Amino acid sequence: TFELKGKVGKVVKIAEDHYLVEVEGDKWIAYSDEKLSLGDRVMVVDVDGLKLKAKRIP
């Protein structure tokens, strides 16, 4: 999973306390310091076990 750092994905679902992000065809649980919206493009900035930390990108 460490190779996911720096990869770009898309928010495909918003849950109460996390997001579901699709990166290279796989879906991952993600969290972010900022509020994300459905369809936002994100970059993986860190990997915490099986969770990704994501940041919105333009």
Rank of each mutant, 00 (worst) to 15 (best):
T1C: 15
F2R: 15
F2C: 15
F2N: 15
E3G: 02
E3I: 03
E3M: 02
E3L: 04
E3F: 06
E3H: 05
L4Y: 03
L4N: 04
L4K: 06
L4C: 14
K5H: 13
K5I: 15
G6I: 01
G6D: 09
K7C: 09
V8P: 04
G9A: 08
G9I: 11
G9M: 07
G9H: 01
K10G: 07
K10P: 05
K10L: 13
V11H: 00
V11L: 04
V11K: 00
V11E: 00
V12M: 11
V12F: 10
V12N: 04
K13P: 00
K13C: 09
K13Y: 12
I14M: 11
I14N: 05
I14D: 08
A15H: 13
A15R: 14
A15I: 14
E16A: 12
E16W: 13
E16M: 13
E16V: 12
E16G: 14
D17W: 11
H18S: 10
H18N: 10
H18D: 11
H18E: 14
H18Y: 12
H18G: 13
Y19D: 01
Y19A: 07
Y19R: 00
L20P: 00
L20R: 04
V21I: 15
V21G: 00
V21F: 02
V21P: 00
V21T: 03
E22F: 12
E22V: 13
V23M: 06
V23I: 15
V23T: 03
V23G: 02
V23P: 00
E24C: 14
E24S: 06
G25V: 04
G25A: 06
G25W: 06
G25M: 08
D26S: 14
K27A: 09
K27H: 08
K27I: 09
W28R: 02
W28V: 02
W28M: 02
W28E: 01
W28L: 02
I29Q: 14
I29G: 08
A30P: 00
Y31P: 01
Y31F: 11
Y31W: 14
Y31E: 09
S32W: 01
S32M: 04
S32F: 02
S32R: 03
D33A: 09
D33Q: 09
D33K: 07
D33E: 10
D33W: 08
K35Q: 11
K35L: 12
K35A: 11
L36W: 13
S37K: 11
S37P: 02
S37T: 12
L38P: 09
L38N: 07
L38Q: 08
L38G: 04
L38V: 11
G39Q: 09
G39A: 11
G39R: 08
D40Y: 05
D40E: 06
D40N: 07
D40R: 02
R41K: 11
R41A: 13
R41I: 11
R41H: 14
R41V: 10
V42H: 00
V42M: 07
V42I: 15
V42N: 00
V42F: 11
M43G: 04
V44C: 03
V44Q: 01
V44H: 01
V45D: 07
V45G: 03
V45Y: 03
D46Y: 03
D46P: 02
D46S: 05
D46W: 02
D46E: 10
V47M: 07
V47S: 07
V47T: 07
V47H: 08
D48S: 08
D48Q: 12
D48G: 02
G49P: 04
G49F: 05
G49M: 05
G49D: 07
L50S: 12
K51E: 06
K51N: 07
K51P: 02
K51V: 13
K51D: 03
L52P: 01
L52D: 00
L52T: 02
K53I: 03
A54H: 01
A54K: 01
A54T: 15
K55I: 06
K55C: 09
K55L: 05
R56I: 05
R56N: 03
R56W: 07
R56V: 05
I57E: 08
I57A: 07
I57T: 05
I57P: 03
I57H: 08
P58G: 12
P58M: 12
P58W: 12
